[in-house]
């Protein structure tokens, strides 16, 4: 170092492009320094100094560090580093910025199993919800539909009273009147009111002898489930209104629907009461307590036993 300070040399040439290494060698030899001297001073390996002098930049680190090495070496040899750095630019014109993002496959470890379990759990919960929904729908939805009370139908049914006679043609009008808007009739006229009052038909407790007599004694439950085509012939033979009579010995729920699905009766009958319903057959009847109920259809006793399940009778009468 002391020799260098005694002989400061100015070796600056513009024409150093592409002769970077030769320039270093020349400057070093003119100062009578060996590669080892340079290596000792710069703490770079002899291999790296040789690489700098032979323009072999492949074994040198990133351009940013190599430029630093060139600056340090130039400073050590007391030459201007700027033309040398310019020359280095010919080898590496672009100093691409180093990536600061680590390439990652982004597979998380540890949570993989958990997520699989989570998937199973979510899937099973979904299945359970769907099953429960289906069961609820199947069990309760039809009942809800059937249990819907219809106010006009209920208003048409009155408790049975002892009355002298019964006119079948009149009762058919009654049933048809129930199908219309009773409220509208009430507002319309007094005569309509009268007719609506006649809906409440007093029916004698005894079966009227003048009623239809062509019917068989007992309506077979098999006939209940007959198709409508068969019913048509039977309907033609019958008067338009048919009469149902329930004699209830124990509390029983009774529901009756006529051919247009109108509810003619839907209520809990107290023990010992009787109920008569007149409407258009076929009737769909549900009797909650089949043992405690006796059903007369067109004054014929209907056997409830074949259509009874668990003391509840579901039957259709034509």
């Amino acid at each position: 170092m002391s020799e260098l300070t005694e002989h400061p040399e100015k070796i600056i040439e513009a024409n150093v492009t592409l002769k970077l290494g030769e320039f270093f060698t020349e400057a070093r030899e003119s100062k009578n320094l060996t590669l080892e001297d340079a290596s000792n001073s710069l703490r770079l390996s002899v291999k790296q100094i040789t690489a700098l002098e032979t323009n072999d930049f492949s074994i040198l680190p990133e351009p940013m560090l190599t430029r630093g090495f060139i600056r340090n070496y130039a400073k050590f040899l007391e030459i201007d580093p700027e033309p040398l750095l310019l020359a280095y630019r010919h080898f590496f014109p672009i100093d691409a910025p180093q990536s600061i993002v680590i390439q990652s496959s982004n597979v998380s470890i540890g949570s993989g199993k958990n997520s699989l379990w989570l998937k199973y759990i979510v899937a099973s919960v979904l299945i359970i919800i769907i099953l429960a929904g289906w069961i609820l729908y199947r069990d309760y939805m039809p009942n809800l539909h059937l249990n819907e009370p219809k106010p006009d139908a209920i208003s048409s049914i009155k408790p049975i009273k002892n009355t002298p006679d019964d006119d079948s043609s009149q009762t058919s009008n009654v049933v048809e009147a129930t199908h219309d808007e009773i409220a509208a009739q009430m507002n319309d006229s007094q005569t309509d009111k009268n007719s609506s009052q006649t809906q409440v038909v007093p029916v004698p407790i005894e079966p009227p002898a003048a009623a239809t007599d062509k019917k068989p004694d007992i309506v077979k439950p098999e006939a209940i489930h007959k198709e409508p085509t068969v019913q048509a012939s039977m309907d033609s033979a019958q008067p338009s209104g048919s009469k149902l009579r329930f004699s209830v010995s124990e509390n029983s729920w009774i529901k009756v629907q006529d051919n247009s699905n109108k509810e003619l009766l839907s209520k809990l009958e107290p023990a010992g009461s009787e109920e008569e319903v007149i409407g258009e057959p076929p009737f769909r009847i549900v009797i909650g307590n089949a043992r405690g109920t006796k059903l007369m259809y067109q004054d014929k006793t209907v056997d409830l036993a074949p259509s009874t399940n668990n003391n509840v009778a579901h039957l259709t009468l034509e």
Partner: peptide, 8 residues
């Protein structure tokens, strides 16, 4: 990062 070192 500013010195353009290969941090990653």
């Amino acid at each position: 990062i500013g010195a353009n070192m290969p941090v990653a």
